[in-house]
Design a protein around this nucleic acid. Structure first.
Lengths: 251, 251
DNA sequence: CATCGCTAGCCTGTATACAATCGGTGGGTA
DNA sequence: TACCCACCGATTGTATACAGGCTAGCGATG
């Protein structure tokens, strides 16, 4: 009965994706209580998969439970975003250290270097197009995924996956923002150097160095965050900007 | 209609607690697929709250989703336990660093020192009873909770809460094990010293030191884990021992 | 005029019926 | 004898009906 035009697995997953999209597109405002019935008529499915999706989105951090029942869209302060980025750096640093200390397999190392080369090609270009940034996002995401894989720890992988779910905490979250910033090339160059250094550190079994590098690597996102927030024009480029609580800055 | 003898909130929460207990008591074996119907007749409630509880327990890390549908009890290797402990240390270290760098309020600091004094009293005793250890567990748990509170970061708090859900990753997980180990007094003394040092570090705004201390503090649990696993007698004292995959060690 | 209480409506939590899919078993054929 | 296909049972995913609780709005009273 399901899936005539759409090719998706279960209703629950579809609801989860649709709700996430609805939140991130601003269709639902931060702080708003989510009425299940309104979602039912918006998505055209029954309450059961929607309730399931709501629980999952709560665990992902997009929603918070209301004591009297139901859920509300979570609102984030600028410091929350900062902390989420720093947290990702800490966890990825941990992963890098573990990978360095325990050593990683040759195929994994090879693929990391492979992705590194491809990213080098992009960064080397004089004028970066939006497509270039887009390709970089894909490669960068894969590189960070490989790093988690390199740690070979399911517990850590789960934790990182969770931390990275918030859009502004994603490793590639701010890459597309850079496309609009004058400092784009510089930050990209530095980030890519971090990538190179961390691979070398892992190869040489330098755990502390690998960890410190990934922490600092995440802090590039801090800079992008600052740069994007200073003027109202680029503010909306911050990933998940609609989740940001309007702070006292105003305009 | 609900709650005649039992005083609990919702069916979902009751199911969650009951299932967790069922898993940790060994009523359900690691690797086993969980049949919803069997839980229905065991707990005497309908499938809906049970399904809800299953999703939450998956997010907590006790269950893993089966591709074809349903859930299975997750099995942990010794290294998983090790990693979970190290992960807690990393996250608590992060919390301590943030607390030190940003500074914490006087009331919080006062309560931390208060708990410290109470724990000192216990550690100072010559012969420690089981009740002593039990009191220590409570105080220790509160102390660690205060540390998280001191970081004043909801994102981080959520993440730590999640990491600590696994019983063997809990800050107080191995305290009761120590009660049965000859090295009990020594490790307790060292751990308590870590507590003192980290509070001093936070007070003095020494972020790096606070972080390193909490990491090392968690590693005391590594030692306890090793000690408990060496002989079969104390092996079952490891928190959540039933979740451990029988490794090649055998007996 | 303000505050307290009641009532009505909505909304969430729970139960249960229905549908679709997965796995296992048995029989048939190469 | 071994492998493949088909059917059947079981189990999960989905829809919907029902009940209890929360909230808000209105009216009455101090």
């Amino acid at each position: 009965m399901v899936a005539e035009t759409e090719r998706a697995s279960s209703q629950t997953v579809k609801a989860q994706l649709a709700l996430r999209e609805l939140i991130l597109s601003g269709g639902l405002q931060p702080g708003d209580r989510i009425s299940e019935l309104s979602i039912v008529e918006r998505l055209g499915m029954s309450r059961t998969p929607i309730r399931m999706a709501l629980v999952r989105l709560q665990e992902e951090g997009f929603l918070e439970a209301i004591p009297s029942g139901g859920f509300a869209i979570r609102a984030f302060s600028e410091r929350d975003v900062y902390d989420a980025i720093e947290l990702r750096g800490t966890l990825e640093g941990f992963a890098a250290r573990v990978a360095a200390e325990r050593g990683i397999g040759a195929p994994l190392l090879a693929e990391m270097k492979d992705k590194l080369r491809e990213m080098d090609d992009i960064v080397a270009r004089q004028k970066l197009t939006v497509d270039d940034f887009s390709s970089y996002v894909g490669l960068n995401g894969r590189f960070h995924a490989l790093l988690v894989e390199a740690a070979d720890s399911p517990t850590l992988a789960r934790q990182i996956e969770r931390a990275v779910n918030l859009p502004f905490a994603s490793p590639s979250g701010f890459v597309m923002v850079q496309a609009k910033l004058p400092e784009a090339g510089k930050i990209l160059t530095i980030g890519q150097d971090h990538h190179h250094c961390v691979v070398r550190a892992i190869e040489n079994r330098e755990g502390a160095r690998a960890e410190a590098l990934m922490r600092e690597h995440a802090r590039l996102a801090h800079r992008n965050l600052q740069l994007a927030l200073v003027n109202q024009g680029t503010r909306d480029l911050v990933p998940g900007a609609v989740l940001l609580r309007r702070s006292a800055v105003a305009g």
